[in-house]
Design a protein around this nucleic acid. Structure first.
Lengths: 251, 251
DNA sequence: CATTAGATTTCGGCA
DNA sequence: TGCCGAAGTCTAATG
């Protein structure tokens, strides 16, 4: 891991430092007092203040204030950079096309500058989404109810895709809408849309909203539409844990 | 501006550094080789790799890989922190309630640690979204068409809120749906919903979708529903620029 | 405190 | 490349 650090660099030092870092596609961090202008999908200005500026090796550009999770200004990956010096001030400009956007930082003073090229070849393993729920329900249909048999997932209808389509123990069609989080009005409306696609045979069609919980409003609407709610938690085991479990049982 | 920097701190040094910084509610940056576990709304794990760890003074917690704009793991503001040492490794744990979530970083090695308390009392001035469009159309109704008179904004109907309601030069009702970006199918569907709320008087009602551009599919659907498209850019001048213009005319 | 709608949403997947 | 849908969305405003 290579890392280079400079405290309180002068303008010329900083610009050399930045150009060196940019040419190496390094991960750059600056703690600077700066002004910011953005023009693109919207327009913004931010007056003088201390901020943390980050340029990633994929061309992401982030400027953070000392509060909020989101950066106050940013540019998505593949942004191109210019670092220039003008009247003894360093300007960093990041721009991209489609849509055209530019983000310009006028740096008054830099307290800390660092760049590094690290090693990281891991990707996030994440569990707890609708996809996992679909898998789970397909594998264990009784989680919905006894006798339920799923027939297809992501079934295309006029209004979109039905998460899971199947039949219940009486052979009636069942439309299942999955939500990995607390379901709201919108989930009910979505299910209703799919439900309506079968209005010719409504007597033999059931709509089930499966989610860990549901808002009161949504429950009311659901009942009004004569549809049902099934409490269902998304699986939260990671894949390798599932595999471990499988391996365990195989032994 | 106070800033403290340490390169390659040992575990004990790092933990003291972190606790000092946390007690001062400083802005902390670490460049470290680490493992990450998250458990809360979902569950995730990230194997060993070099990452940039940020803790803000409002309790935001961000961990960045060298790619993508978004952090690979995070915790929203008001997160509480623990920095402990175990088997000569530093663990940083950030947790919050409602919903309960925890984010744990196991630090194997730290290349750079810094904390600072900066000065920043500026807030972002931003322009160019739906609210600005509403204002603009109310002020200059002819932007929609000659003779258009807006009567109310955010008019409540069964299915939600109509952006702008008004009458055209013939006295017919006009429903306007605004989008600050390229409008897609959903924008048309939304407008159609509002449109349908007036189906008793459909002959005297027009639906207009106003946006900078529209997708081909959306345009087709719009025409099928006998509604209209009006090309309209959101205003992108900042407030003080607007004021300058006003002042200019007042003089 | 919960809910909602908008966002410079970002991001991934698919046509 | 453009479009659509989901997200640990986040965030500000509102009841």
């Amino acid at each position: 891991m290579k890392i280079k650090v400079k405290q309180n660099p002068e303008s010329m030092e900083l610009i050399n430092f930045l150009n060196e870092a940019l040419s190496k596609r390094a991960f750059i961090i600056l703690i600077s007092c700066c002004r910011i202008k953005y023009r693109g999908r919207a327009t913004s200005k931010l007056g003088l203040g201390d901020r943390t500026i980050v340029i990633k090796s994929d061309g992401s550009f982030l400027i953070h204030q000392d509060h909020n999770l989101d950066p106050v200004n940013w540019q998505p990956p593949n942004c191109k950079f210019q670092a220039i010096i003008e009247e003894n001030k360093v300007f960093i400009r990041g721009f991209r096309r489609n849509p055209y956007e530019s983000l310009e930082v006028e740096i008054n003073k830099t307290y800390l500058a660092s760049y590094h090229v690290g090693n990281d070849n891991k990707t996030l393993e994440l569990a707890g989404y609708e996809e996992d729920m679909r898998e789970m329900v397909f594998k264990d249909p009784f989680l919905i109810e006894k006798g339920f048999r799923p027939t297809s997932r992501e079934y295309a209808v006029t209004n979109g895709f039905i998460d899971i389509l199947g039949k219940d123990k009486n052979g009636d069609l069942v439309i299942i809408e999955l939500k990995s989080r607390r379901a709201g009005i919108n989930a009910v409306k979505q299910l209703k849309k799919y439900f309506d696609d079968f209005e010719d045979h409504k007597k033999f069609v059931r709509g089930i909203l499966a989610a860990p919980s549901i808002t009161e409003d949504a429950m009311e609407l659901l009942e009004k539409y004569k549809m049902e709610f099934k409490e269902l938690e998304p699986p939260k085991e990671l894949n390798h844990e599932k595999n471990l479990t499988l391996d365990f049982f195989k032994k």
